[in-house]
Simulated assay, not measured.
Amino acid sequence: MKASQLKNILAISVIGLGVSACGSMDVVSSIGGNSSDSTAMDTFGLTTEDFNYAANQAVEEFLASPASNRADGRRWRATLGEVVNDTTFKIDTRSMTSRMRNKLINSGKFSFSGFTGQDRTSFVADSRQLSKSSMVDQRTVAKAGTVQAPDLEIAGEIRQRTNVSGDGSRQRLEYEFDFRAVDANTGQIAFSTLIDIKKLGSNKKFAW
């Protein structure tokens, strides 16, 4: 066998081993996140698809429960509280709560406060300060004592558990989304749900 042929065979073998090693890092999500989107990236971290799934599940369960309907038939005046990130990853929890807020508003059963919580803005308070300006038509200024307080807070926590197989070759990350709605008038938890997402993949560490 010529030296050039031997080099080609060795090169093909090395490439084959490299592809095989990289393939072993595939991560499979419990929600089937890698099957339909050709641009999806295999990762143990949380993706947009994961956030959409968790937000959809939480909102659908909330809307299906009696707690989503006020006894007087009016909309809940809700506020977004804190969602604690209790994982080893840096997670923008607003990616979750913003999706939930939008879906709840579109249901017609909820309005959200821009005066308290994560959506708090200075606009509401600043509007009332315009009453001190002689340049502003006072008939158009927002009046004091007209802001409606929220009567429902939506908050929660994202937790993570990591399990490694007996031979150390595989690991599974389990994410738990814990959401609750608290009634401001009674102090009771009106609704609570747990959404699970599991990711299974290699436990090996590669340089690339």
Rank of each mutant, 00 (worst) to 15 (best):
I195Y: 00
T146A: 11
T87R: 03
F206A: 15
D126W: 06
E61S: 07
G32Q: 10
F89I: 02
M1P: 10
S192H: 06
M96Q: 04
M135H: 13
I197M: 01
T43M: 02
E153P: 15
N85W: 10
A40D: 03
D86N: 14
F110I: 04
G73R: 04
L152P: 07
Q5E: 03
S127K: 06
Q5F: 04
A64I: 01
S13M: 09
K143G: 12
T87D: 10
V141L: 14
N102G: 02
S29Y: 01
A67G: 13
F191W: 02
F191G: 00
K7Q: 07
S13W: 02
K199H: 00
M100K: 15
E176D: 08
N52P: 02
M1R: 15
K199M: 05
V124M: 10
F51W: 08
E176F: 07
G156H: 00
S165P: 02
Q171F: 12
D151V: 11
V83P: 00
A64S: 12
S24L: 11
S68D: 00
R161W: 10
L173Y: 05
A55Y: 06
A184F: 13
V27N: 03
A155K: 10
V136S: 09
L130A: 12
Q171N: 10
L10D: 12
G201W: 05
T79I: 14
S202W: 00
G145L: 05
T193M: 02
V14T: 15
T43E: 09
S20F: 03
L194E: 11
Y175F: 04
G32L: 02
V147E: 12
A11Y: 05
R159A: 06
F177E: 04
A21R: 14
A21G: 14
M41H: 10
L10T: 15
F89G: 04
I158Y: 00
